[in-house]
Design a binder for these strands. Sequence first.
RNA 1: GUGACCGUAGUUCAGCGGUAGAGCGUCGCGUUGUGGUCGCGAAUGUCGCGGGUUCGAAUCCCGUCGGUCACCCCA
Length: 423
Amino acid sequence: MTAFTAPKGVPEYFPPRSRAFVDVRAHLARPAELAGYAYIELPVFEDTALYVRSVGESTDVVSKEMYTFEDRGGRSITLRPEGTAGVMRSVVENRLDKGQLPVKLWYAGPFFRAERPQHGRYRQLQQVGVEAIGSDDPALDAEVIAIGDEAFRSLGLTEYTLHLTSLGCAECRPPYRILLQSFLDGLDLDEATRERAAMNPLRVLDDKRESVQAQLTDAPLMVNHLCDACTRHYDSVREYLRIMNVAWVEAPRMVRGLDYYTRTTFEFTHHLLGAQSGIGGGGRYDGLMASVGGDDLSGIGFGLGTDRTLLACEAEGLTPGSEPHLDAFLVPIGAAAKSKLVSLSAQLRAAGVRNDLAYGDRGLKGAMKAADRSGAPLVVVVGDAEVEADVAQVKTMSTGDQVTVAWPDLITFISLAIERDLT
RNA sequence: GUGACCGUAGUUCAGCGGUAGAGCGUCGCGUUGUGGUCGCGAAUGUCGCGGGUUCGAAUCCCGUCGGUCACCCCA
């Protein structure tokens, strides 16, 4: 039993799984880079009011899941529960929106939500996100969605579904909301659900209980009450998605937990993850910039769950990050050989050849075992005889072939061997 | 936050009232300087933590911490 334990609900990634985590994160970010999104590094805590204003006071995230505390100057600080608000704040504060639009940004890092932990639901969670600000072009909605889809697909994932809907805008949502509310008023609901209906009637639509769902079959749906502009926008988004061969499922009852979403809204869920199946989600947020004090610019973005995506890969039997991470492993026998290989190791690294050395002066047999487990395709063995002859033995692990190479040719020989293997 | 289940070597788990086991992994050996297979051997546990019941607790009870499942929520 160790004296200290990590805080409740916090995942840690250490070898060998940390390699998979890093690889997943890289795959999630790559499609955004390919589409011209630039990286933005933001603070992990912000003024509490930023989240209350943008995410929405009535949301669960703000009302009961935030890590909020007072700092030494008496300011109310909150550990970021999501990424979009901080990006908006930074864009406005640093006037990134005063140049060419849209502003396209991506970020990655930890977020914090004080929920009851579960497999895939963590108090410190990792996300990779993108935001495209300053354009309401539906092709941009489609681009963002396609980037998310490509991120998952590039990892080899297949057991996921893209859910898509439109949540309407400031014009058409309020009247729909009233319509839905009056429908829900006529239903037989328990106290907690009734309260939710009053707070956010949309939320009731995706209640998982059958007793509730049975009563909802005739509920009015937002997609049937969109204004003309929203209908055109949504139709257009879907047309672009078709052009890009992105498959989706219409999800007219989908609800998102953050209040700022408007129009296009989407979610990626994975079938093998149980209750915490959401691996990514996002949407358009046309009033958000103005609400944090900026110009009234529209925007769209998503957050992809790095932790859950890794879990999804594991559930599908995928092994991200399992490629060998070394090119060569160096095995010295005796002090003279050790000095030569310590020097060689540094030279190889400077030449871009990834390598490790058998430390601890263990026997050749044990050192070879370590070499095998390192995954390095090449092993360099040097003992007294080789030092004497100014050569090294270079063994190709996959075939067992071993050749003697003159010491001055070694770096070139190894570099070429690796290059040949890669092509 | 609500309800339920679980917590034993590095790891996966068995043991379920009489003073702790297996597979995998780790390390060593199978003669002098070569891994992966095979054979042989070894090391490692305050049985999550605290209290209680008992002659005796990893085993029963309570609390606590942590994890997991569902709800809720969402990445």
